[in-house]
Nucleic acid binder design. Structure first.
Length: 395
RNA sequence: CGCUUCAUUAUACUA
């Protein structure tokens, strides 16, 4: 059971959803009964991809076919999943259903609901829910996550002073803010253009050593500067990071590279891109999960300028850990076509198909035309067949 | 008991 769960999860994390589901369905064939764990795992995977209808179906299978009793985890996963897919009411339905299974909501349950309400823009209701938590039981007292969630809720509604009130309130109730709380607040203040307030707060916590700006803090501030067209300020912050020995991560580089590309400073962008590869930033486990799409501008520049090989090196690093983005595959494939390195392009096509992405007509056309031009009818034919399987009709 | 669940920063899509 455990082996299967790990497998199911790893496939999903690698972006191979079909493989992951296949594994889940094969459990029975191997004589391994599905457990709450396996259902929970698969629910969480599907909901992350927005497959709510499939989850509802499986939930029935779970109860009626396999006769498995859901646990708190199950409900937390379901509530979160439906809330995130803008079905907050459905989330509350599951919340009410918990009692039928003698299942007690925990802090995570409430936090999830608070989050769902905030994302739906119902901050006041969320705030009331938080107040209600205190009266229920000591185990259900709002914790740092609850408060941070609410702070973000207020910030998103541009209600900065309410956010600051919540921040003060948590302090007075003895809940210590953590780095995420500070970063949330800073993000909110950035959006409200209250940069002075940020300085004030950072100064205050710096003096008593409660919070040191981390990678995320810098990324937030650099993004704000970039969006305000102050790339030079952002670059200064980047220098300051190394001064303070705060490690940059993938987000740091994609922010700067992107802005440099937008300004047309491709040389500097490429330098940072090289640094990204040299420092093996993308191989590190710590830091954020790299976002492939964040590098699209530089990929486009490189692939248009005969440097597809360099782009592909980084792209392959990103494939291992990053979240996937179909258009990036296309950029690389077209780059290879342009450089007549068609087999490499074809390899990327295969990678794409393995991830269930559907290449578009233009992608197929360029490859097939390229193969014909280079007198490789075998490959051309092979690619054509893939195209038909993708549901494209040849012109 | 372990594997599954909650809050912060970077992309595009969508609006």
């Amino acid at each position: 059971d455990r082996l299967f769960n790990t497998l199911v999860l790893s496939y999903a994390r690698a972006g191979l959803l079909q493989q992951s589901l296949k594994t889940f369905h094969k459990m029975k064939e191997f004589g391994v009964p599905r457990s709450v764990f396996s259902y929970n795992t698969v629910f969480s995977i599907l909901l992350r991809r927005g497959r709510t209808q499939m989850v509802s179906k499986l939930y029935h299978d779970m109860r009626l076919t396999d006769r498995i009793t859901p646990d708190v985890y199950t409900f937390n996963i379901l509530i979160r999943g439906f809330c995130l897919n803008s079905m907050v009411d459905e989330g509350f339905r599951f919340f009410k259903e918990m009692s039928r299974f003698r299942c007690c909501p925990d802090v995570v349950t409430y936090n999830t609901l608070v989050d769902g309400l905030c994302r739906a823009g119902k901050v006041r209701i969320a705030h009331n829910l938080l107040k209600g938590m205190r009266t229920k039981s000591p185990d259900l007292s709002p914790n740092v996550v609850t408060y941070t969630t609410l702070i973000r809720g207020y910030c998103e509604k541009q209600l900065v002073s309410e956010a600051l009130d919540v921040f003060k309130e948590m302090g007075s109730r003895g809940v210590k803010p953590n780095p995420i709380t500070y970063n949330t607040l800073i993000q909110g203040l950035c959006e409200a253009r209250e940069l002075d307030k940020i300085k004030e707060i950072l100064q205050g916590v710096h003096d008593n050593g409660e919070f040191r700006p981390d990678t995320c803090t810098f990324n937030t501030l650099m993004t704000t500067h970039c969006n305000a067209g102050k790339l030079d300020e952002a670059m200064k912050m980047f220098d300051k990071m190394s001064e303070l020995k705060v490690e940059p991560d993938s987000a740091t580089y994609s922010i700067l590279i992107r802005s440099l590309c937008q300004e047309g400073n491709f040389e500097r962008a490429e330098e940072l891109f090289d640094e990204l590869e040299e420092k093996k930033i993308l191989r590190r486990k710590e830091g954020c999960v790299p976002l492939v799409a964040g590098y699209n501008p530089i990929f486009e520049y490189l692939c248009a300028g005969g440097k597809t090989v360099k782009a592909e090196r980084v792209f392959r690093q990103l494939l291992k850990r990053g979240t996937q983005d179909p258009p990036t595959f296309k950029t690389l494939i077209l780059g290879h076509c342009k450089e007549d390195t068609l087999r490499e392009g074809h390899e990327i096509l295969v990678l794409m198909l393995r991830r269930d992405f559907v290449p578009d007509m233009e992608t197929y056309d360029s490859l097939i035309e390229g193969f014909l031009r280079k007198r490789e009818p075998g490959f051309a034919h092979n690619t054509l067949e893939k195209m038909l399987r993708s549901g494209h009709l040849p012109k």
